[in-house]
Design a protein around this nucleic acid. Structure first.
Ligand code: MN
Ligand code: MN
Ligand code: ZN
Ligand code: ZN
Lengths: 138, 138
DNA sequence: GACAATAATGCACTTCCGTTGCATAGGTCA
DNA sequence: TGACCTATGCAACGGAAGTGCATTATTGTC
């Protein structure tokens, strides 16, 4: 818990009780988390507070937002030292059609794509959908 | 217009006046179109009708849906003979940060990705964001 | 053409999720 | 302690997708 506190402080986020809990929750789950997920997990907390906490975390590069195509925004902790805006830190995400969970595949960077004349890429999002390792009956 | 009528009929969609107009609209624009776009273009039409028309078109493989990360669903005509579910027909999409338009880059297929053990991919979505050819001052 | 069956359209309403405004509580520092 | 800033709580809004049901149009049959 001390470590979490330090992590938040380093990134310029005051370590309130709520924030520590949310960080801890994100760290324990190894999948991407939606606002609704957190809301369910912290029943007595205010939706807005959770929402703003996630936004603050995102601004301060503690989490990155994931758009997996479900229409629901999800979040996952950033790797230490990651800058989600840099091409080198853009990894792909995998959404399981069976368990409906989204995971970061941080080892799998998005390959560089050659675009037609005149197109300049600044950001990229790659989502694969299918059956995850847990569900594929391993 | 006869051609459009034929295209719809071939795909098992009855060519009503509204549907012909919507198809024509999609064909003229060379960018991905949202329901709101169509609603604006056909001010006197019902949103539900437009909504259901797009959904019918999608089911019958006349258009494909595009999730460009804006949270707004967009649609574009399929290439003739394309089956959007097949890996070979999955192309990337480009969202311009300047003009906010999304285009299909049908020539650019999504590269095959090697996944970790146990993951089975069935579908993929790749969106690049940046500056499009029209906006890059060509 | 008249009729029944089927499909498309129009209208009202709902739900879900993200987002904002503003008042209050809490923590920080002089 | 008091002034100040930040975080939290409460309420309400807004956009977009989606649904139920009545009405209108189209089709095929006699
Ligand atoms: Mn990730
Ligand atoms: Mn496309
Ligand atoms: Zn799974
Ligand atoms: Zn542009």
């Amino acid at each position: 818990m001390k470590k979490i506190e330090q992590r938040l402080t380093e990134n310029g986020v005051r370590p309130t009780a709520m924030r520590l809990l949310i960080y801890k929750y994100l760290a324990e789950k190894e999948v991407a988390i939606s606002l609704t997920d957190i809301e369910a997990a912290f029943a007595k907390a205010e939706r807005t507070t959770l929402y703003r906490t996630l936004r603050t975390f995102e601004e301060k590069k503690i989490v990155h937002q994931i758009d997996d195509g479900t229409g629901i925004q999800k979040y996952a902790l950033c790797e230490p030292g990651c800058d989600c805006n840099l091409e080198q830190d853009l990894h792909l995400h995998f959404l399981c059609n069976n368990c409906d969970e989204t995971v970061c595949l941080t080892e799998h960077k998005i390959p560089h794509i050659n675009l037609p004349e005149g197109f300049v890429a600044e950001d990229a999002n790659l989502v694969l959908k299918g059956i995850c390792d847990k569900c594929s009956g391993q």
